[in-house]
Design a binder for these strands. Sequence first.
RNA 1: GGGCCUGUAGCUCAGUUGGUUAGAGCAGAGCGCUCAUAACGCUUUGGUCGUAGGUUCGAGUCCUACCGGGCCUACCA
Length: 570
Amino acid sequence: MARILITSAIPYINGIKHLGNLVGSQLPADLYARYNRARGNEVMFICATDEHGTPAELAAAKAGKPVEEYCREMHATQSELAEGFRLSFDHYGRSSSERNHKLTQHFAGKLADAGLIEEVLETQVYSNADGRFLPDRYIEGTCPNCGSEDARGDQCEVCTKQLDPTDLINPRSAISGSTDLEVRETKHLYLRQSTMRDKLDQWIDSKTDWPVLTTSIAKKWLHDGDGLRDRGITRDLDWGIPVKRGTEDWPGMEGKVFYVWFDAPIEYIAGTAEWADANGKTDADWERWWRTDKGADDVKYVQFMGKDNVPFHTLSFPATIMGSGEPWKLVDYIKSFNYLNYDGGQFSTSKGRGVFMDQALDILPSDYWRWWLLSHVPESSDSEFTWENFQSSVNKDLADVLGNFVSRVTKFCRSKFGEVVPEGPAYGAAEQAVIEALQARLTTYQTHMEAMEIRKAANELRAIWTLGNEYLQEAAPWSKFKEDPEAAATSVRFALNLIPFYAILSEPFIPDASKTMLDAMNTAPGWPDSVVDALNALPAGHAFTVPEVMFAKITDDARDEMQTRFAGKS
RNA sequence: GGGCCUGUAGCUCAGUUGGUUAGAGCAGAGCGCUCAUAACGCUUUGGUCGUAGGUUCGAGUCCUACCGGGCCUACCA
């Protein structure tokens, strides 16, 4: 039995996430977690909300709430939505937790002890009206290059020229519009990750099986220009983890907090500690996942994330781990994803364009979304959500191929034999042929799931469902029944046995439907290590019930209505 | 500007280290079945693999240029 540690990139706190966010990390991570649990592996699956940073403060201010209260409420909301999508986290933590405070400060202390922290005096733009330092992109003004009036402090979107905030003509705060800005000196801590470049480079080179998307981004950062640059890990903000060196104050850093990208990945570890706290476990119980000196040697650690998160997970976080000099677990595999677009463009929170997690669950059950999203997950390039495609997948794959299979088998049995598994002679050549086909496809399915080739796994699963319909067509128990009811009974018994088999294989993709199938068949088997045994599991005389329609189809009218509703406003 | 990814049938995508007639699902056409959510099964029509060159006995697969789409570019997270 293997031990698998799984983390999903932690979603930012400032609002409800859209389907693109969901499919880019949490959903595939959940698929992998469910699969590994089903195979009998010991799984620790951690996610959390990422709560610090300027946008969180601004979102709270906009909502008219103290930032702490805002984050607590949004965490509750996101937790609820995660449950709605059946994301099976062992713990859904918060980066603002006490555990993360302690651990982040601990890492900073260790890095400082190792000589990897440098204090840097820099100048930044301060807004008197807003009472805060402004990140570069929160400063707007006229572009000195093209004259556009909405250039940002980091780059002009019109002419794409890279800018420095002080380049802007008539600079103003993007938050308040105030022009009462001044340049102030402020001291910050930098992580000297440039000194670890060669070590990180070798480490990345050793990961030959990682997706190209992952390694190419890491390589770019390692070798672009002068190579990996040092990175500021503190900010002048109120909301965040106070800068401390371990448990000691850090002279000169009073009133400053750690930068969200320093503390966010540490929350993976802290979140596991939160799990222990929440479940009456000891420190040893979470440390055996993270400390190679305390039992984590045999752990396989897999991270899931969108491509925008790759630099932090391939470079900054490993630099933190390695630089600490302590035996923390490093990631073994990074599965990264491209973006999901929406109907010919991008999802847009501000324009209300696209489907957000809460809306999705209002419209249709989570299994519908899970199936479409996972079977179209943007693995090799950006992919696109269209309502036609969604409707076709749901109606064809779920309703027609799987749902209708369950329906036709159970209803036929009920009308001819009652709601019990009929007997009939032993399986013959026809059944044997199906068993062999299933065994081959099951092996392929497992290979894809283990390799996290999600689209291919979904295709294989669909092909496994199709085998049931092919069998029925060939066996035609409705014809046999007229001359040889016993032979028909065997066919029906075999087909009924396929239902729990399908339920188990499908569970990582569509957990609710899986449960419906198992409940209807009144059974709860484990993973089918042997297809023959699995298809003999339900004996003659076993009672079952005919389930309700498992997947209602999406009509053209409903589809058109949703397409209009979520088109957004320009 | 630089880097990376991507362009294969109407649509969504597979195509392992270059090797005989380029595959799947959906959509379309035909046939069959009638147990089932007018569902299912079988057969079948669609592609000079973005364009132009090059390497090779042989290229969707490697190289170059160009065209199109996307992402990243370190103070949004």
